Simulated assay, not measured.
Amino acid sequence: MALLIVTKIAVATIYVIRLNASHSFQEYAPPIAVMAALSFFIVAALWLAGMKLSGGD
């Protein structure tokens, strides 16, 4: 699951770099920040769920 998220972030980064060459980055910064924050919270929730299921340490 983490590998999938890392892959998506890498693809999004490449896409943003290409967009930045042709468009103003300011237009795309807010949605990208939201996607990054959402990905972080999903990973954190999965990690916490895994800790609870395994008994935590």
Rank of each mutant, 00 (worst) to 15 (best):
A21S: 06
P31T: 01
V6W: 14
G50T: 04
Y15A: 15
L3N: 04
G50W: 05
F41D: 01
A45E: 02
Q26S: 14
I5G: 04
F40M: 09
K52W: 06
Y15S: 13
I5K: 04
A12D: 13
A21E: 06
I9S: 09
K52P: 01
I32T: 11
L19E: 13
F25P: 01
T7G: 14
L38C: 09
S22V: 13
I14M: 10
A45D: 02
N20F: 15
K8F: 15
K52M: 06
I17A: 15
L19Y: 07
E27L: 08
A29G: 03
A44I: 02
L46H: 04
L4W: 14
I42H: 06
F40S: 06
A37P: 01
N20D: 11
Y15V: 14
A37I: 12
V16W: 07
S24C: 08
S22P: 00
A2R: 10
I17Q: 07
F25S: 11
H23M: 12
A12I: 08
G55F: 08
M35P: 00
G56S: 05
I32Y: 09
V6Y: 13
A10D: 01
L4F: 15
F40R: 01
A10W: 10
T13M: 11
A45F: 11
M35C: 08
L4R: 05
A45T: 02
M1K: 02
I14Y: 12
V43I: 07
L48R: 03
E27K: 00
P30K: 00
Q26L: 15
A49L: 12
L53V: 08
V34W: 03
A36P: 00
L3H: 07
R18P: 00
S54H: 06
N20S: 14
V34P: 00
L19F: 10
M51V: 06
H23A: 13
I9A: 13
G50R: 07
K52Q: 04
Y28W: 13
L46E: 11
I14N: 01
A21P: 00
A36N: 03
A36Q: 04
L48G: 03
A45S: 08
R18N: 10
V11C: 11
Y15L: 15
A2E: 13
